[in-house]
Design a protein around this nucleic acid. Structure first.
Length: 159
DNA sequence: GCCAACGTTGGC
DNA sequence: GCCAACGTTGGC
């Protein structure tokens, strides 16, 4: 049994890993490692399912923008980078016996013809309640309403 | 580079 | 369980 797909937004700093990097992976697929926030982890672990859709967002970019879409191709499993002392996101409290952090695999679906800058999105009525646009919003994995997802897709095809 | 907003940690 | 101190995120 599968439910209707849900919609998400995931942030990445393009200086660390960009949508262009994703486009060059084998099968244009990667594991979304390095998430170290419980709320974000819980969304991945408890709610993300195969075929769910993801908006990819470039944070700390000039300008910050939604840059494309991806699909969940593997559901949550332990993030092994948390066990590697040399990894930037190493967490000594996580272990193979008792993994604390999870990740999913995503496959690139589309790189938008034009990035949609945060500033532009702030002016869109259909997005007025979007988590990304909330003041102080920092969540790196966040749910998106279907109406919001559709509005952003539509915007990406304009101009 | 600044700093507001937020999350986590740890003493008590 | 409170909350001050600290670390991080991320727009600007």
């Amino acid at each position: 049994m599968t439910r209707a797909p849900k919609y998400w937004l995931m942030k990445t700093e393009p200086s660390a890993y960009s949508i262009q990097d994703l486009s060059q992976e084998p099968d244009q697929t990667t594991c979304w490692d390095g998430v170290r926030n419980y709320q974000a982890r819980n969304f991945m672990r408890d709610q993300m399912q195969l075929q769910d859709r993801v908006l990819l967002y470039h944070s700390n970019a000039k300008p910050p923008a939604v840059v494309g879409t991806a699909v969940i191709v593997r559901e949550a499993y332990p993030d092994h980078t948390a066990w590697d002392p040399k990894d930037k996101h190493y967490d000594p409290k996580s272990s193979p016996e008792n993994p604390r952090w999870m990740m999913v695999d995503i496959q690139l679906e589309a790189v938008f013809d034009r990035p949609l800058p945060l500033e532009e999105l702030r002016g869109v009525r259909a997005l007025s309640k979007m988590e990304l646009l909330r003041k102080g919003s920092r969540l790196s994995v966040q749910p998106v309403r279907k109406t919001e997802y559709d509005a952003i897709q539509k915007l990406s095809r304009k101009k």
